[in-house]
Design a protein around this nucleic acid. Structure first.
Lengths: 252, 252
DNA sequence: CCCACTTTTGACCATTTGGTCAATTACAGG
DNA sequence: CCTGTAATTGACCAAATGGTCAAAAGTGGG
C-alpha cells in the first residue's frame, strides 16, 4: 500500500545534507485549532493542542526515566502512540520538546507557593505549602524527576529561567517569612535555605522513590506511607521553625 | 567514507557478544606498581591501580554531568587523558565502569552514619551525622550527583544494593534513634523518614547546586554560604527533633 | 638478547539515533 | 467534486557511539 509513486517519483532526494536549520515553522497562522469534532477513522481526530499534550506527557515519562541523553525520540514516539516524524512536526527537535516539558513542570513547581502570603498565619501557610509540595511529589513524580534531572546536570536549558523566574519568587516569599520572624511569630531560620530544605524534603519522595521504597521494603507508596511521610515532614519542619503547638500530635 | 570491505569482513571468532563479563580480570598480582619513573614519552607510566582510579574519577565527573545515557566513553577517555580502548581494557564496558563509580560512591555515602551509635548523645550524634553529610555535599558533589542520577532513573544498577546494604544499615541506625525516643531523649519522629529528610536536606546542596546558586545569586558556593547552609540544616533538623538547647544560637 | 606477559593505541565496525523528505491522507470551503 | 492546507507516515540519512582488533610498546626474568 501506500506507494504507487505516480510517474515521476525518483527525483534523487538531493543527497546534500540540506544542513538546514529552521525548517519546521511550527504553529500555523491564526486559528489553527478548528476542532473538527468529526472523527476521521482510527485516530479520534485530536486537534493540535491535544496532540501536543499527548506528546509532552509521553516525553515527560520517558525523559524522567532516562534523562535527556538517555531518552530517544523513537521511545517517546512509541509512548505517545505516534510515528516519530510527528514529534518533529510538532516540536521541531528533541531539545525543543524537552524544553516544552520543562516549562510545563515549572508551572506546577511554583503553584503551591501561593499559600505563602503575608496575611496568613505562619503555621497555616507553611503547612499548606509543605502539604502542597508533598501532594505534587506523590501525584506527579515524573515532572519532578525531569526537573531534578535537569538541575542535576547543570540546568543547561533553564539556568536563565531559574534566575528570571524562581529567584524573584523566592525573594518575595522569603521576605514574607522574614517579616514573620521579625514579628517573633516563628523561630529564626534562614528563610531562603528554608525553601531549599522544604523542596528537598518533599521532592525526595518523587525523585528518590526507589531508594525510599527499598529502605522501607515496599514496592510502591501506598496511602498509608504517603500520609505518614507527609505528617513526618510537616511535623519536623514546623517544629524546626518553632511552629509546633496547636495541633497536638501526629494526626493519623 | 568508511570503507566498505564487503568481502570477508569478520571472521567472527566468537560470534556471541561475549556477554559475560569477567574479562578484565582487574587487579594484577602483587607489586604491579613498579613506578618506572622513566617516562615512556608522554604518559608518566602509571600503574594499574592509579590508572583505574584516574578513569573512575574522570567517569564520575562525566556521568555526573550527563547521566549514564548522556555520557560517552570518548568523553570519559578524554577527561581521563587516555585513549578509549583503555577504558574497555580496564573496565570491560560502559556499564561496568558506571557500576565501579557507583560502588565507590556508596562507601562515601554510608561513612558519616558511623556517628550514630547508641552510646552517643542524640544531639551530638545527629549533629555529627548532618555535618558529615553536608561536608560531603560540598566536597564531593560529583559522587552525589551520580548517585542521585541513578536513583532518579529507577536505580537499574543498584536496586539490589539498596536492599542488601542500605536497608539494613538504616534499620540499625533507626533502631538507635527509636531507642532514644523511647527513652524520652528526643522528640517523637519517624526515625526512617528522618533519614530520608536528612539525606534530602543535605544532598540538595550537591545535587541541585545550580538551583541554589541561581536563587542566591551566586556563581558557586563560598565558605560563608557553606557554613550558613550547614548551620541552617543542623539547626532546623535538631530543633525538629526536639534537640535544640545547649548551643544558644547560630554559631557564626 | 630473547621470551612471556601486560598495556597502549590507531583503525574499524555494527548499531543506534536525531533528524529529513516526499508522498499520502484528512478536511474545510467553494 | 475539486483544491489548498494541515497532518501523517514509511523510508532514509549522516553522525555519533559502544565496543573490538590486532599490531605495537613496555617490562621483567632468564
Amino acid at each position: 500500500m501506500a506507494g504507487r509513486p505516480r510517474s515521476e517519483p525518483a527525483r534523487r532526494p538531493g543527497s546534500e545534507p540540506r544542513s538546514g536549520g529552521r525548517q519546521h515553522q511550527a504553529r500555523g497562522r491564526g486559528g489553527t485549532g478548528r476542532r473538527t469534532r468529526r472523527a476521521g477513522r482510527t485516530l479520534p481526530r485530536r486537534n493540535r493542542e491535544a496532540q501536543e499534550k499527548a506528546i509532552v506527557e509521553a516525553a515527560e515519562r520517558v525523559f524522567a526515566g532516562a534523562g535527556f541523553g538517555g531518552a530517544t525520540m523513537a521511545e517517546i514516539a512509541k509512548a505517545a502512540g505516534l510515528p516519530k516524524p510527528n514529534l518533529h512536526y510538532y516540536f521541531g527537535s528533541k531539545q525543543a520538546l524537552y524544553r516544552a516539558v520543562l516549562e510545563r513542570t515549572l508551572r506546577e513547581w511554583l503553584e503551591p507557593a501561593d499559600c505563602i502570603v503575608a496575611s496568613a498565619q505562619p503555621r497555616e501557610a507553611l503547612e499548606c505549602y509543605i502539604r502542597g509540595k508533598m501532594r505534587l511529589s506523590f501525584t506527579c513524580p515524573y515532572a519532578s524527576r525531569v526537573w531534578a534531572n535537569e538541575l542535576l546536570h547543570g540546568a543547561p536549558e533553564l539556568r536563565a529561567t531559574l534566575v528570571r523566574t524562581l529567584r524573584p519568587l523566592v525573594r518575595r516569599k522569603a521576605a514574607v517569612i522574614d517579616r514573620w520572624i521579625a514579628e517573633g511569630r516563628m523561630a529564626k531560620v534562614d528563610s531562603k535555605h528554608l525553601f531549599f530544605t522544604i523542596w528537598a524534603a518533599t521532592q525526595t519522595y518523587a525523585d528518590f522513590a526507589v531508594q525510599i521504597c527499598a529502605v522501607l521494603g515496599l514496592d510502591k507508596f501506598d496511602r498509608t506511607v504517603q500520609e505518614r511521610a507527609t505528617e513526618h515532614v510537616v511535623g519536623l519542619i514546623l517544629r524546626g521553625c518553632g511552629l509546633a503547638g496547636t495541633r497536638p500530635g501526629r494526626r493519623k
